[in-house]
Design a protein around this nucleic acid. Structure first.
Lengths: 213, 213
DNA sequence: GCCAAGTCTGAAACTTGTTCTAGATTAGCG
DNA sequence: CGCTAATCTAGAACAAGTTTCAGACTTGGC
């Protein structure tokens, strides 16, 4: 699905089609809100992010919070965008060093996974919001998905992936999200997530460019 | 506290420690509740399943509903167990006919997918509940997972899967759940889900028993 | 049949996400 | 500066999930 064509070169993921050019104070408010959200999420996960508390911690009125983020899910998905942006930047500085594409992707995802393990509550809030989001949050979720895709393609070292390869990437993303869910809900161990990631990354080998052998 | 009702004919994951043997009237109440839940879900999806309405439609008091199912998520996950049971039974009667394991698994999942397409709202309620469930619902979610695994292994025609094959099955399940989510939230088409299922099923080929070639 | 323990009902109360309103503040502009 | 539209604030109000409780009803044991 190639619905978006907004400028993607800078990694700013400027998700709004017509971002109404916030004033400085508004930009600051937005940052304070996202910061408060991440802070509360880090403490107690999804349920600890309570809109009244976010508003208070960010120093804005409840109505204002809802003007910036029309629901708790929107807020948490935006928080995830924010975090992914950081990760992407970090990864670009120190790219994975594996032999083949599958290894590099697995390494990249395991790095992301370790980052999440350091803030499991935050991970809980973000991932639960992401998978619980309904249609009204689709544009934002899609942005997260595109970011994730970009990270994986970076790891694969591909500029112009084939449709087959894009399918493999989508399946990897599916596995990534769902494996995180099972880990967060205590139904799978860290080791198991690792295995699942490595398993799904073998799909990449199946779609290696034929002209490379 | 109750849930032991589904002694399936088959190897139903009968993991409950002590199902307190419901009386007939209790069993009937439980059925009415699950029926009301599925009914409301079929109409309007996750949000249409409102606990007060379920209670009224089932003819029980709100407190009773909560005694049977300690949360809306528990209720919907139990609803999914119920539906999966049906599916499993149906599939056993008419097993998939593909050439190799990968084809049979893909066919099975596509059959399930078509069933869900007939009740997209119900699918929405069940799948969203399943992925949103937190630790307190782990046992029930695990039961759903085991049922799904059983269905996939049936399609593969395996009695004693290797650890590698189990990994592949887990990844298939991940993809299945996550692809459903993207479809339900309108971010992927039916065709795309099909492709993702077929893509991930190719993993099975990688784990074919070595002594078979 | 009768009692104790457990269960069910009806209704109110509580929690947290979301919406609404009236008035204060701010931003942009002539 | 003074005006107007947009934004922000405080707080009430509303919606739906969840909890609680007093009293009525069932159940199982005697």
């Amino acid at each position: 699905m190639d619905r978006g064509s907004w400028n993607g070169d800078s990694m700013t993921a400027d998700a709004r089609p017509a971002a109404p050019a916030l004033t400085e104070r508004q930009e600051a408010r937005r940052r304070r809100i996202l910061h408060a959200s991440a802070q509360l999420a880090s403490r107690g996960g999804f349920e600890a992010v309570q809109m009244r508390e976010v508003a208070e911690a960010a120093g804005v009125a409840l109505g204002t919070l809802y003007r910036y983020f029309p629901s708790k899910i929107h807020l948490l998905v935006a928080t995830m965008q924010d975090q992914l942006q950081h990760l992407h930047t970090t990864l670009r500085k120190r790219p994975p060093a594996g032999e083949d594409a599958a290894q590099r992707v697995a390494e990249t995802l395991m790095r992301a996974f370790r980052a999440l393990q350091r803030e499991p509550h935050l991970a809980d809030a973000m991932v639960r919001a992401l998978t619980f989001a309904d249609r009204s949050v689709s544009p934002e979720v899609d942005t997260v998905s595109r970011l994730t895709t970009a990270i994986i393609l970076d790891a694969m070292g591909l500029e112009h992936p084939t449709p087959e390869q894009l399918s493999a990437v989508r399946v990897i993303e599916h596995t990534w999200h769902s494996a995180l869910i099972t880990w967060l809900s205590g139904r799978a161990s860290i080791a198991q997530v690792k295995i699942d990631i490595e398993t799904v990354c073998r799909l990449i080998d199946l779609t290696a460019e034929p002209d490379r052998g």
